[in-house]
């Protein structure tokens, strides 16, 4: 065994910034090569490249997921607004767009986009529900806003749980 340890800060950064599901194996590989005599500089370079590659991939996936979500939602809301006479078709379209965004985010393994679209889905669902039960004009006050914002918060928590790295519950199901 080598006397010195691999740079701890590099490991810490890898675990926090590299989102790949195999990052434990990646860190293990780097440790193994360090034990074989690779330098600390080599270790830092490999860690930095892995972080940059992962962040780049992650940003690309999230941008694509959010872009597709926006186009899909815009098309549905506009169709509801212009072709189907506005409310409730427009709000239903908004909800369908948000749910579609969740599915796209899961398909593309985009964690950030999943959290955002899950929050927006819950927001849209609660807004639509309140408007359907109490009417469009009756439900404009403070309690309504608190209700929909609370639902959005729950949606964000749900999205965060689904996208949580340790379990990879949703993303690893696809391999």
């Amino acid at each position: 065994m080598r006397a010195s340890r691999p740079p701890r800060l590099a490991d810490w950064l890898l675990f926090r910034l590299a989102s790949g599901s195999k990052r434990h194996s990646l860190v293990g590989d780097l440790h193994e090569q360090y034990e074989r005599g690779r330098s600390s500089l080599w270790y830092w370079r490999q860690a930095a490249e892995a972080i940059i590659l992962n962040l780049g991939m992650s940003l690309g996936r999230n941008a694509l997921a959010l872009g597709l979500f926006w186009i899909f939602s815009f098309a549905l809301v506009q169709s509801g607004q212009r072709l189907l006479g506005g409310w409730p078709a427009s709000e239903t379209g908004q909800l369908m767009g948000c749910v579609g965004g969740v599915l796209v985010a899961i398909q593309l393994r985009a964690r950030g986009a999943l959290v955002i679209t899950a929050g927006l889905s819950a927001f849209s669902a609660s807004e639509l529900l309140i408007h359907l039960i109490y009417g469009l004009r009756a439900a404009q006050g403070g309690p309504t806003h608190f209700a929909v914002m609370g639902a959005a918060l729950l949606g964000v928590v749900l999205g965060t749980t689904l996208a949580r790295p340790p379990s990879h519950a949703v993303f690893d199901a696809r391999g």
Partner: peptide, 27 residues
């Protein structure tokens, strides 16, 4: 697994391979 895969490619190509790129590709 990761280490021998990158060793094999390094030996064949004569250039260093980033461990991160191996895992992204395998994924």
């Amino acid at each position: 697994y990761g280490v021998p895969i990158s060793d094999t490619i390094e030996k064949a190509s004569g250039r260093e391979v980033a461990a991160g790129s191996i895992y992204i590709t395998l994924d």
